[in-house]
């Protein structure tokens, strides 16, 4: 399988990329790791006229600390981010989520920014971005702006990026010490896209009362979603299996996931409930430092 004809440009800096995007808009696609784009091009489903290869822009692949945030450059390879000491210390749930993406060879090429802007509703990084309240720093002809994860994922394969904008970095607020977290998913085979994925961040006080809860789900809607009703329900309650089960019901009873040949909508909804309980339990264990 070979792609349709396209022009290839290798800019040396971000300014050049913005200029090219402004010039070509929808005809151009940015090539980062190519793990989603190239297969789509080879199947000739995507036929960009121009590929803008950003792999020669080193400033886009740094992992840095800035105050209470971790800044992950958009071009950072997934494996690099997964194994980063900074990420493992401050946002271990991000490492865990990456470990579920495809296989190691895919993660060697695939980039954090690439997966985020692709906006696949079942992909891991959009889900974990929502649970971490990540921010996307983007730049375009109008200058820089920050987009909250909540607003970034619009629908199937569609982000809030303007045609002339490029993602510079994903900013992750660091998790507090003692914070519990989990990332659980179900897929047919390891490495497949998740049928349902759930990410949890959970804080409890000394008495075991939930003080902060965040639950994000993937694979059940056109974009990753947060289960706010369930989150609010849990705050102020002593964390145990019974309240987790009630929360999981709240999180999933109004879902209406699509059916496809991997799983029916009903099955997705049921698994979402099961995984929310599992995710909350796993996160609780981590608040006690037992994992």
């Amino acid at each position: 399988m070979k792609p349709a004809t396209f022009d290839y440009i290798l800019p040396q800096n971000v300014e050049e990329v913005i200029e090219l995007l402004e010039q070509h808009e929808d005809d151009a696609k940015i090539l980062a790791g190519g793990q989603s784009l190239i297969p789509l091009m080879n199947f000739r489903l995507a036929r960009p006229k121009i590929l803008i290869d950003i792999n020669k822009i080193p400033s886009l692949s740094e992992i840095k600390e800035e105050g209470d945030q971790l800044l992950i450059g958009a071009l950072t390879r997934e494996n690099e981010a997964m194994n980063s000491a900074l990420v493992m210390e401050h946002c271990p749930v991000f490492s865990k989520a990456i470990s579920k993406i495809g296989h190691s060879t895919i993660r060697n090429r695939g980039t954090v920014g690439g997966s985020v802007v692709h906006c696949d509703p079942s992909a891991e990084l959009p889900v974990v971005s929502r649970v971490l309240n990540a921010q996307m720093r983007v730049i375009g002809t109008e200058g820089e702006r920050i987009i909250e994860a909540e607003d970034f994922f619009v629908t199937y394969l569609t982000s809030a990026l303007e045609p002339s904008e490029i993602l510079l970095e994903v900013r992750l607020p660091k998790l507090e010490k003692g914070c519990g977290w989990s990332f659980v998913e179900i897929s047919r085979r390891a490495g497949d896209f998740a049928i349902v994925a759930v990410a949890v961040v959970l804080m409890t006080d000394k008495k075991g009362v939930c003080t902060e809860v965040r639950i994000a789900l993937g694979g059940v809607d056109d974009r990753p979603i947060r289960a706010e009703e369930a989150e609010n329900y849990l705050v102020g309650k002593v964390a145990d299996e019974t309240v987790f089960e009630s929360a999981a019901k709240l999180a999933t009873e109004d879902l209406d996931p699509e059916s496809d040949y991997h799983a029916s909508g009903e099955y997705r909804q049921h698994m979402a409930e099961v995984l929310v309980v599992k995710g909350l339990k796993e996160a609780l264990v981590r608040t006690k430092g037992d994992l």
């Binding site: 199947f43 489903l45 509703p121 629908t155 199937y156 056109d222 699509e258 496809d260 040949y261």
Partner: peptide, 17 residues
């Protein structure tokens, strides 16, 4: 055709949208 093989995971949702 091609779109069904590759895009099936999202086709239902996109059609509804």
């Amino acid at each position: 055709g091609l779109i069904a093989g590759v895009g099936q995971r999202m086709l239902g949702g996109i059609s509804k949208m």
